[in-house]
């Protein structure tokens, strides 16, 4: 099978790899690069567990052909913290009890980051809209919403 050469920035680092035609970004990240933070939930764009940022925009890596990120910047949860220091969203998720099984958390955090990067002080409705593509089956949406709002307001929880 013909392989395609591919180069992109992965969490600030340049990576180069060869992918089979039809391979999606989720598989490329997990199996070729070894970044296990994006998760497989459905492979159909229905759950948001594989959410990543491409050039700062939220995308579902399971529906993104790996070849299409050539020359672009891909961010995953693996790149969210700054060295040993957690991102404010990560701290807020911890403090607000915003994870149960943790499987949707990487996608939730990337969706929340995409929101706060473009809108640093969102309303509750805007937070709900921003994570509406991410399914949490432990149904912990309330603490997740509170965590995103808390991170936006610098750690102060808002009701």
């Amino acid at each position: 099978m013909t392989k395609t050469a591919l180069q992109f920035r992965h969490n600030g680092r340049d990576v180069a790899l060869f992918v089979d035609g039809g391979v999606n970004l989720l598989v490329a990240l997990r199996e070729l690069i070894g970044d296990m933070t994006p998760k497989f939930g459905c492979g159909q764009g229905g759950c948001g567990a594989c959410s990543v940022l491409i050039d700062g925009e939220l995308h579902l890596s399971c529906l993104t052909l790996a070849e299409t990120v050539n020359g672009r910047a891909v961010e995953t949860l693996d790149g969210l913290k700054d060295g040993p220091n957690l991102h404010p969203l990560q701290r807020a998720f911890m403090e607000q009890f915003a994870a149960q099984c943790g499987y949707c958390t990487p996608g939730m955090l990337m969706a929340a980051k995409a929101l706060l990067d473009r809108n640093p002080s969102p309303s509750r409705a805007e937070v709900i809209e921003a994570i509406s593509g991410n399914i949490c089956r432990c149904t912990g949406y309330e603490p997740i919403i509170n965590a995103v709002l808390a991170a936006a307001s610098g750690g102060r929880a808002r009701a």
């Binding site: 997990r30 199996e31 070894g34 296990m36 933070t37 998760k39 497989f40 995953t76 949860l77 693996d78 969210l80 913290k81 957690l86 990560q90 998720f93 911890m94 009890f97 994870a99 943790g102 499987y103 958390t105 990487p106 955090l109």
Partner: peptide, 16 residues
């Protein structure tokens, strides 16, 4: 919780 928010909690499929 720290594993969950950093994406380092290891689920079965995270083994290569």
């Amino acid at each position: 919780m720290l594993g969950h928010v950093t994406g380092t909690s290891t689920y079965f499929d995270d083994h290569k």
